[in-house]
Write a protein that binds this DNA or RNA. Structure first.
Length: 333
DNA sequence: GGCCCTCTTTAGGGCCTT
């Protein structure tokens, strides 16, 4: 199977060409070897993911390659909450051979426990900003056509971006500029193929024994439920140690804050409020991720929010969202 | 569709995501 995968940097210039197999993928494998009992790279068991075979079953071969059309970028250094974004990095064209990857076991530590044990919990939390583009607003009838992630701790391969073939006509290219032609190109992965890679990528960014915090704008009502639907559609589940934060909540607080002139909670309004220049096309996943990463940095500064704060006060899990959706569906019958 | 706010909870409207 061959799929197109984009790994992008926050900004040009493009200064390095890596192969994923030589960089990120090697890192994934090294991680699994180094932390066998802690954070061994894992795609969760076959029973959950509907794979054939037992835990010892290896993944079948997959090739993932970037293409420039997909604007797949891979960033080297970006930013960290509490630190200024100081650098930009390179672009990657890669061939990724995911064969012979062991499905291991991952031991995670409960976040609340970790916070109480370690005040500097932010050091063991991976903060990833993400965004999706879709064919519309309906989780049932529409599909994801682009996804982008940026690990705010920076470093090699800190961003992940790809178009997704939705197997349907893209009816809203005027919104994001993504056409049916673009997503139907040879090599653009379907969601079913992308999910294991996506999970593995996030896992590769996770610190040993740490947790993952995935941040998006309006994620509670759009991005996360959409992801849940896509995962469930192919009998996958979002890993239970993925914690989500919706930046709409702190944005509401910012609107109410004394002296704030923020008039709307939209990402565009937040970008304008903080005078963040738009790099790339609005409503392309990575462009919006870049904006949100900067908004998050400035908003957490203004509201004096720390990463543990975000976790304690704003985070939610996919299962909480799923349970809410099930309850509401049941009540509406 | 779902969250939040308010002129509220026995509800309705605005906003946000593509």
């Amino acid at each position: 199977m061959r799929a197109t995968m984009c790994f992008s940097h926050f900004q040009l210039p493009r200064c390095q060409i890596h192969t994923l197999y030589g960089s990120w993928w090697k890192k994934v494998n090294n991680l699994s070897k180094t932390h066998e009992n802690i954070s061994k790279v894992r795609l969760i068991g076959p029973s959950i993911y509907g794979l054939q075979g037992g835990h010892s079953r290896r993944w079948t071969q997959k090739f993932v390659s970037t293409n420039t059309e997909g604007k797949n970028v891979l960033s080297g250094k970006t930013t960290n909450i509490g630190h200024q974004i100081t650098d930009v990095s390179s672009m990657t064209h890669s061939n990724l051979d995911t064969s012979r990857i062991e499905i291991g076991e991952c031991k995670s530590v409960h976040i609340e426990q970790k916070i109480s044990e370690n005040k500097d919990v932010s050091k063991c939390i991976t903060v990833i900003v993400f965004d999706i583009e879709t064919t519309g607003f309906s989780r049932e009838n529409d599909r994801i056509i682009e996804i982008a992630l940026q690990d705010l701790s920076g470093g090699e391969n800190s961003t992940f971006q790809t178009l997704v073939n939705p197997d349907m006509i893209v009816t809203n290219p005027q919104i994001h500029g993504i056409s049916t032609y673009m997503v139907r190109k040879i090599g653009v992965p379907r969601m079913k193929e992308l999910i294991p890679i996506l999970v593995q990528y996030v896992r590769s960014r996770q610190k040993p024994g740490g947790q993952t915090l995935l941040i998006s704008h309006n994620g509670k009502t759009f991005d996360v439920p959409f992801l849940i639907s896509e995962f469930n559609r192919y009998s996958y589940e979002i890993p239970s140690d993925w914690y989500f934060v919706d930046t709409m909540s702190p944005a509401r607080e910012l609107m109410k804050a004394e002296g704030s002139t923020l008039s709307s909670k939209s990402l565009q309004a937040l970008r304008e409020y903080y005078e963040i220049p738009l790099i790339g096309q609005a409503h392309r996943a990575m462009a919006d991720v870049n904006v949100l990463a900067l908004v998050l940095q400035k908003m957490t500064r203004d509201l004096k929010l720390t990463v543990p704060c975000l976790l304690e006060s704003y985070s939610f899990t996919a299962s909480e969202i799923s349970n809410n959706l099930k309850k509401k569906k049941k009540n509406s019958r």
